[in-house]
């Protein structure tokens, strides 16, 4: 019986290996778990999202050095109470690769952080909001490139109430009556 189970497992393992398609088996880029970002009503804040590029691959930075290269870009959509003020990208790293040793490409490898500027409206309801978006990237390794991909992302934002505006007490008249 044990032999039967072991041979079944072996067949399964061999079969799984044989079926492994060429190309990207899983996304080259993943988003690291993000904390809940807190922003205050009416005030902008930045959510820093960290992405990881699988070892052995690179993706173009947001400002690649060639017009033909596809830049990494993040799009985030938000509820009507929240305005996305923009996205800030890190500088890429200038690197040469075996397929073009004389060319320098501006790329992201390993970890890189993208900032999302979030501004809740002054009248936004306080509480937690889920923001969703997608990171568009195009990956290559030393010998091949892979079609552009969209990585769906989401992260939470907590809108905190703005502290009550300091009241200006009107100057009291010495003649005021209580």
């Amino acid at each position: 019986m044990r032999k039967l189970l072991v041979s079944s497992f072996l067949i399964f393992a061999i079969s799984a290996c044989a079926q492994e398609p060429l190309g990207l088996k899983s996304p080259v880029v993943s988003m690291k778990p993000a904390p809940v970002f807190t922003v205050t009503q009416g005030k902008p804040g930045t959510a820093s999202l960290t992405f990881h590029v699988t070892n052995g691959y690179h993706i173009n930075s947001n400002r690649p050095r060639s017009e033909f290269l596809i830049p990494t870009s993040l799009k985030v959509s938000a509820d009507t109470d929240i305005v996305i003020g923009g996205v800030t990208y890190p500088e890429g790293e200038d690197m040469s690769f075996a397929f073009a040793p004389d060319d320098k490409l501006n790329v992201y490898t390993r970890d890189f952080a993208v900032g999302v500027i979030i501004r809740p409206l002054r009248g936004a309801q306080s509480g937690k909001y889920m923001l969703r978006g997608s990171l568009k990237y195009q990956a290559c390794d030393n010998a091949a490139c892979y079609p552009p991909k969209q990585l769906p992302i989401n992260f939470e934002v907590r809108i905190a109430k703005a502290p009550p505006a300091a009241r200006k007490n009107p100057a009291q008249s010495p003649h005021s009556h209580r």
């Binding site: 173009n60 290269l69 073009a100 195009q138 290559c140 091949a144």
Partner: peptide, 9 residues
């Protein structure tokens, strides 16, 4: 593809 560095080689 135009974005493919190895293709250029």
């Amino acid at each position: 593809a135009t974005y493919c560095g190895p293709c250029k080689i």
